[in-house]
């Protein structure tokens, strides 16, 4: 069984577009609670993405917030040109003002932490087939609590038959899949991420977890 795993951004954007198309001609005017939740989620994803790639042009939290809303509207308009973010959806987005301020306050801290290696780093993996991944060390340097492999593009392929043929032990008939390799447990989720907990791992075991994670990524497609 081969499964395509979309990033949260791609999945939510695709879902919004599908639901708007299903609603037909009046989609721009009518309110739909599921579309409303999805647009808010998409804006949250944009807020976090912007913060991860800190833009010094932002002077205030509301700049980040406005830009995220505009980006979301534009990404939907790329697929449905007549789409306009109506007043009701904009009202729900106002709930994100305070989280946006918090994200804005933390972006400069994140930038400084990255420059001083205060937090775990990101490691790019060589592309395998259509899959292109990076590994993120989750936690403070010296206290890495987990490793997260994440597709760097919007999607990745999971070929379960191929993994089983290579004697990977896989539990579960749907996401999240549990893969065990040498007593390490890897969680493969529907957004293409793979997580392994590394709490209190000594250096040697941490290196082994990284190597096994890279090997799992390479064997997936």
């Amino acid at each position: 069984m081969k499964l395509e795993m979309l990033s949260d951004h791609e999945f939510v954007l695709n879902s919004v577009v599908q639901m708007l198309e299903e609603k037909g001609a009046n989609s721009a005017e009518e309110f739909d609670s599921t579309i409303d939740f999805a647009i808010t989620e998409l804006t949250k994803i944009h807020l976090r993405n912007q913060a991860q790639f800190y833009d010094r042009r932002f002077q205030e939290g509301k700049d980040v917030f406005e830009r995220a809303i505009n980006e979301v509207a534009e990404s939907i308009q790329e697929r449905i040109p007549q789409f306009k973010l109506n007043k009701r959806y904009r009202m729900s987005l106002q709930e994100l003002r305070y989280p946006a301020s918090e994200i804005f306050e933390l972006t400069s801290e994140l930038w400084e932490s990255k420059e001083t290696n205060r937090i775990g780093s990101r490691i790019s993996l060589p592309p395998e087939g259509n899959n292109s991944y990076e590994i993120i060390e989750v936690g403070l340097t010296g206290y890495i609590e987990g490793l997260l492999a994440r597709p760097v593009i919007g999607s990745a392929i999971l070929d379960l038959d191929k993994l089983r043929a290579q004697n990977f032990s896989i539990k579960g008939d749907w996401f999240p899949f549990e893969v065990s390799i040498d007593e390490l447990i890897f969680t493969i989720d529907d957004d293409g991420t793979i997580f392994v907990s590394t709490e209190n791992f000594p250096e040697r075991l941490m290196s082994e977890a990284k190597a096994q994670l890279a090997s799992l990524v390479a064997s997936m497609c």
């Binding site: 939740f37 709930e95 989280p99 749907w174």
Partner: peptide, 23 residues
């Protein structure tokens, strides 16, 4: 919900109802 309904998280609303919206 993921395992039994093969659905996926669409949104995790903040301070809102319900806890998770899935499709």
């Amino acid at each position: 919900a993921q395992r039994l309904y093969k659905c996926r998280k669409l949104a995790r609303p903040n301070h809102d109802y319900p806890d998770i919206v899935m499709v």
